[in-house]
């Protein structure tokens, strides 16, 4: 999946000479937390977050009435070295940027011009879609040896049971890296048969298992 498939195209922007007050109003009316600042050629020259705006205000503990700060141009508080991404970037890669840079929003630029925005929330929503959690299904977690070919062996069994797979995730078994866990969401209310077949083939199916429970 690439960025242009999930980015928002209607981006609310400001110019560097607009006031901090305008930014406040825009954020409140549109329920947003970031506004990219652009020049006349639609190039991103800065970005402001709701936190930048709040930092520019006097504290609630100082004397009231001192709000002239918000008449300043936004340029004074905007972050200038903006991290941007490209519409053709992979969604998985930009999630790493969110994580490592500890930011919540990325303007998307093409030929240096702003074409969209993507937020942490959009990213999270996409991940929910990727896990298939929004479609009716049962979850199966299968522990397999960490060697090539295991996924195809397991999906082959599921395929023989004629179940449609909504999604697959694979992650290393935290306790022992010679194993991996494959997580499937499959479109069925009755996974008993496929669990039985998998168990008969020697796979460990991680079910909602609590220590000491047998059923």
């Amino acid at each position: 999946m690439i960025v242009e498939e999930i980015m928002k195209r209607d981006v609310i922007t400001l110019h560097k000479d607009d006031t901090i007050e305008t930014a406040f109003q825009l954020m409140n009316t549109n329920h947003i937390r970031h506004i990219p600042i652009i020049d006349n050629d639609n190039r991103v020259i800065g970005i402001v977050s709701d936190r930048d705006l709040r930092d520019s205000c006097p504290s609630i503990f100082t004397k009231k009435g001192k709000t002239d700060g918000i008449n300043n141009p936004i340029e004074k508080i905007m972050t200038k070295d903006v991290i941007t991404v490209h519409p053709l970037d992979f969604v998985e890669e930009i999630s790493v940027i969110f994580y490592e840079k500890e930011i919540a929003c990325l303007p998307v630029t093409k030929d240096d011009r702003l074409v969209g925005m993507i937020t942490e929330k959009d990213m999270l929503y996409t991940l929910i879609q990727l896990t298939g959690a929004h479609q009716p299904g049962s979850q199966l977690e299968v522990k397999v040896e960490n060697i090539p070919g295991m996924l195809s062996k397991v999906t082959n069994i599921i395929g023989k049971h004629n179940f449609n797979i909504h999604s697959v995730l694979i992650y290393p078994y935290p306790i022992d890296t010679t194993y991996k866990i494959i997580v499937f969401r499959i479109q069925t209310m009755n996974p008993i048969g496929v669990i039985e077949t998998l168990t008969n083939h020697g796979y460990e199916v991680m079910w909602p298992n609590l220590p000491g429970m047998t059923k």
Binding site: A133, H134, Q135, P136, G137, S138, Q139, L140, E141, R185, T188, M189, W207, P208
Partner: peptide
């Protein structure tokens, strides 16, 4: 719905 159908 962690494991059980339908998940919601």
């Amino acid at each position: 719905g962690r494991y059980l159908f339908p998940g919601t």
